[in-house]
Simulated scan of single mutants.
Amino acid sequence: MNTTKKGSPLDRKAQTDKFFQDLEEQILQRLRSEASSPTGREELLRETGIRDAHLLDELGKLGITADGLMALRLFPLVLVAWAEENADARERDAVMTQAVRLAIREDTTAWVLLDQWLTRRPPGLGVDAWKRYIHELFSKTSDVAQKRLIELTEKQMTEVAKASGGHLGFGKVSKKEQAMIHQVVTSMRNQAE
């Protein structure tokens, strides 16, 4: 039985939700087109120095432009938010708090990408792109910088994991979240070697 009547508050909410979902999909489609275009690839290459053609292709498929690349830095936080099969509001807030700390604003491509990844589980391609990105980044940074980034990422992932677990929803990291944190940190350490 459908309890929503045309013009009812539930119907208007459904229409509004659909409108914003369609708008978000249009924005993401535009980002993918822009990122995959020769101009988008050239700008990403110029801004980042990334020479890995496969990585540039993956970034384009994910809709990551030069100004959205910072979202990829926070991809491990998104992964831990999804470790329990859904990313809840407290985990989302914890990820977005970290984004704000990195000067990612709501009107940026990076914010849109993070928001999308926290709304719908990101594709597996994101993990591959993140690993290639870390490899590229680590090839240009010192051992000290690599170690600090690994430690910071682990700390940020733990904060996201603690956002919704434990007593009254705060403080506990689940086994699935611990496994995800361990997997990401191990991957980063392997890239640093």
Results as ranks from 00 to 15, higher is better:
L125S: 08
Q98E: 13
T97K: 09
A99F: 13
R148I: 01
E84S: 14
G165F: 05
T97V: 04
F75W: 09
E106N: 03
F75T: 02
L137E: 00
H135M: 03
L72S: 11
Q146T: 04
L118N: 08
K140Q: 14
G124R: 06
L79W: 02
G68D: 05
T109W: 10
M96W: 02
D67V: 05
V95M: 06
R148S: 13
E84D: 15
K162V: 00
D115A: 08
L137Q: 02
R132V: 03
A161D: 06
E154S: 13
T119Q: 11
D93W: 01
D115I: 00
F75E: 05
M96C: 07
Q98F: 00
E151G: 07
A129G: 06
F138W: 06
L137D: 03
K147R: 15
A87P: 10
H135V: 07
L152I: 00
L113F: 09
K162H: 00
Q116M: 08
V160K: 08
E85L: 15
K140L: 13
A89S: 13
A94F: 04
D143T: 13
W117N: 06
Q156S: 15
Q116D: 12
A129P: 04
E151C: 05
V144D: 07
R101M: 01
F138P: 03
S164H: 05
L125H: 00
L102Y: 14
K131A: 08
D107F: 12
L137M: 01
R132M: 14
R121A: 08
P122N: 12
P123E: 08
L113Y: 07
W111M: 11
S164L: 10
K131H: 02
H135P: 00
L113V: 12
R92I: 01
E106C: 05
V160M: 12
G126P: 09
L69R: 09
A89F: 00
A163Q: 06
L69V: 14
L149M: 14
E136D: 15
F75A: 12
M96V: 09
G126S: 08
V144H: 04
A83S: 14
V95C: 07
H135S: 12
I104V: 10
L79M: 14
E154T: 05
L149C: 06
F138G: 08
V95A: 11
R101V: 00
K131P: 01
R92V: 06
D88V: 07
L114M: 11
R92N: 03
E154V: 00
A99P: 12
R92L: 01
A94V: 03
A161S: 10
L113W: 07
V78Y: 02
S142I: 09
T97A: 13
K155C: 13
D67W: 07
L72D: 08
Y133C: 01
A87V: 11
V160F: 10
A99I: 06
T109V: 15
V100F: 00
V144T: 04
E106V: 08
T153H: 03
R132S: 15
P76F: 11
A89M: 10
L74N: 13
E159C: 04
M96Q: 08
S139V: 02
D143H: 13
E91G: 14
L152V: 06
R101F: 00
M96L: 14
R132E: 05
G126A: 14
T108D: 12
F75D: 04
P122R: 08
E85H: 14
E136L: 02
A83H: 01
D107P: 13
